[in-house]
Simulated scan of single mutants.
Amino acid sequence: MGENLIRKIIHLDMDAFYASVEQRDRPELRGRPVAVGGARERGVVAAASYEARQYGVRSAMPSTTALRKCPELIFVSPRFEVYKEVSRQIRAIFAEYTPLIEPVSLDEAYLDVTNNLKEVASATQIAREIRAKILAETQLTASAGISYNKFLAKLASDYRKPNGQFVVRPEQGLQFVEGLAVGQFHGVGPVTAAKMNRLGIFTGADLRLQTAEFLQQQFGKAGQYYFAIARAEDHRPVVADRLRKSVGSETTFAQDLTELQDLLDGLQPAIAEVWEYCQRTGVLGRTITVKVKFADFQQITRSRSTVGPLASLAVLEHVCRELVEGLLPLPKGVRLLGASLSNLSTGEQALGTPPGGRQLTLAF
């Protein structure tokens, strides 16, 4: 792709995915506040329906806090195999339009439709068609952001949620970024946003006033990224599935975890996403790593390698459980947990299919 060619990127994000699947499959839950996760005293919310979100219930929130906010909240045990199957249906729809699909998790992905298999010139139309197909085939809604880079497409997909889409055209990018709070930027977490606020940086416009040198002094390597996104710049391509050095996922919790069962529950979504990647790509791995970040931001990892490639989800869960148990007794609360798989290998699957199709006239 030539450097002067403006990409057409779509970020597709399913709406309250886990909770929406449960409401779809159980009609008695429709229209009611639902949380996927453990209802125990020290359980954690894995996902919340929009009805629950109206009360302030959010993912990674302790169940006791969620119940205080919404006494009528209904807890449902997660069914990750079901969510993975629905995710496969959705990605099959993506593949009808482009081979350049970069999954982020079970419920979201980036698509590069600059050149697409349907030869549709408008990325907006493609997003609309994909969302309609998802609804027709899964009875679930999706939101989409359309823009010329991944950063803006991600921001745009949150702009009209749920069941909507929003476009940021090339001439609108800078103005769009300037008006947003830095805490809304993908890649700027709560801690970084608070530090920016202390430095007098509250909006994209404030961030743009800072020099690259100042941002690198304050934020290290991430400073260059912040300098670029303040100018609505993001040159990262959409990368189709390919063999990577490692695959992982992690979750930050609203309240520190201290009990073993809460740690295991909190790690389960990351384990599910890692295994889903393995199933979807045919990739296998031998080294399992659990990442832990404590309340004071101290970070540690614990790893174990198997003799041969990982054989099943059960083995992954078993090893992760033993690694977590090896951390006990905890010296302090845990604010983040992650799971990853490395020493990857693959069979005969051809990963990273190159883009095809002829170039089309740009039309957002």
Rank of each mutant, 00 (worst) to 15 (best):
G248R: 04
L111Y: 07
I134F: 02
F214E: 07
R26D: 13
V247R: 03
G333R: 10
F253Y: 14
A240S: 15
G308S: 14
L313V: 05
E81S: 13
Q268S: 12
E276K: 11
N4W: 09
A109M: 07
P71F: 04
A39H: 04
F176E: 11
G179C: 07
G357C: 15
G189R: 04
G183L: 05
A270G: 14
F166L: 10
L100N: 02
V34M: 07
R68Q: 09
L267H: 03
N343H: 06
R208G: 02
R40V: 07
L215V: 05
G189E: 03
E96L: 12
F297Y: 14
V307S: 14
T258M: 09
C320W: 00
K161W: 10
A121L: 12
A48K: 04
V247F: 08
S59W: 00
L117N: 02
G189S: 04
N197V: 03
S20L: 11
T361F: 03
I288S: 00
L243V: 11
R40T: 12
L360G: 10
A205Q: 15
E72Q: 15
V76T: 10
L263F: 13
E317H: 14
S87I: 01
H235D: 12
K221N: 09
S147H: 03
G31R: 01
G31K: 00
G338R: 13
P190M: 10
F219H: 00
F364C: 05
G200V: 12
G347S: 06
L5Y: 06
H318V: 07
G38F: 02
F214A: 15
S340I: 00
E41R: 10
K221L: 13
R68N: 05
L263P: 07
V82N: 09
Q125T: 12
A181S: 05
V168H: 10
C278L: 06
V307C: 07
F202A: 08
M1I: 09
I90N: 01
G187Q: 07
K84A: 14
G333L: 10
L310E: 01
F75G: 13
R32P: 13
T301A: 07
V324G: 02
L344V: 05
F176T: 06
L152K: 01
V36N: 00
A212H: 12
Q255R: 04
A194P: 00
A35K: 06
A16D: 11
G189W: 02
L344F: 13
H11P: 00
L117V: 08
A109Q: 08
E41V: 01
Y110R: 02
A363C: 15
A47Q: 11
R358H: 10
E233T: 14
R79F: 09
T361I: 11
C320G: 03
A47N: 15
R79G: 06
K154W: 12
S105H: 03
V274A: 05
E72K: 15
Y277F: 10
S59L: 05
A222V: 11
T138G: 01
